[in-house]
Design a protein around this nucleic acid. Structure first.
Lengths: 153, 153
DNA sequence: TTTGTAAATAGGAGTAGCTACTATATAGTA
DNA sequence: TACTATATAGTAGCTACTCCTATTTACAAA
């Protein structure tokens, strides 16, 4: 019996793959078998894998693939909106000593992090289902974009 | 003339330092000059420094201090609530291929990331001042805590 | 179908950021 | 003042990521 790590039907997966291929072409990206394998590996799980984890998975169908290719491809997918980075930036950990409640905006270009405080964001309510299932220690609202200084060029 | 990287008066800074010392004692942590220097360096800026950046800064008043001490101390401060990590986890970057709108909960113990979707979180509104100043590319609500599986022990 | 070429890949080397280890030093306590 | 648990400095090691180069490949144009 085959171990099932699948989160959707093959039909659904194929449909997504089709749309992914279209998206690649729309962005002038070549459709390589490696890219498709990585995309399918990523979409067909809800584990939020790291590049390393996906590399292991994709190697089973594509033994020669390199970790660098997986990493590079994942970043490319993020750029065209076919994937997203949900944790970790690859950059150094950044600290804040301000204990007042506030939120952060991060510039994706210069990596500057700007504080702001919007009271409504302090008050967002965690849905009951989540609050029951998990012990919530922190909740935060996080914005990303281009900052005023970078936009000025 | 002294370059001014200060964000608050010396009086304010000293008051914060006092409270920090009390907090250390309350948590059974020793009050070392290094710890104080690191704390003051962190609080007296709004740059959200990395360990490396703070290390450079603290070295000016404390030449022999090691990067490891800065890193370790910052994590310690985070544990007692005197600081927080605002970006980067030290762990590997994690990806998501689900393009549907949703939010994430991350377990601080097992690092598992769980998707959930709460429509109200899709609709949070960015304050006008921020929207005018920055080009917002993404907004997200992020929860951290202990997951059901980890709590069961 | 063939050919040209810009893009992608494999493999490996290099780098940055973090962590573990050990000997020494020090804060807090009795 | 002496004791002990904790913290630090210095170093070595590890992991995640990025860069480099030669080779291969997708795909456009002939």
């Amino acid at each position: 019996m085959k171990k099932n790590t699948t989160t959707m039907s093959n039909i659904e997966l194929d449909r997504k793959t089709e749309r992914f291929i279209a998206r690649c072409r729309a962005n002038g990206l070549k459709v390589t078998p490696q890219r498709i394998a990585i995309y399918r590996g990523l979409v067909d799980t809800d584990e939020h894998p790291s590049a390393e984890m996906l590399h292991e998975k994709v190697k089973k169908v594509f033994p020669g693939i390199s970790l660098d290719t997986v990493n590079r491809t994942l970043l490319t997918l993020s750029e065209i909106g076919a994937a997203s980075v949900v944790e970790g930036s690859g950059d150094a950990r950044r600290f804040d000593g301000d204990s007042e409640k506030h939120q952060h905006f991060k510039c994706v270009q210069c990596k500057r992090i700007v504080d702001f405080h919007h009271k409504a964001f302090d008050r967002i309510k965690v849905p009951v289902g989540i609050a029951r299932r998990f012990t919530i220690l922190s909740k935060s609202v996080y914005l990303e974009g281009i900052c005023d200084l970078c936009r000025r060029r």
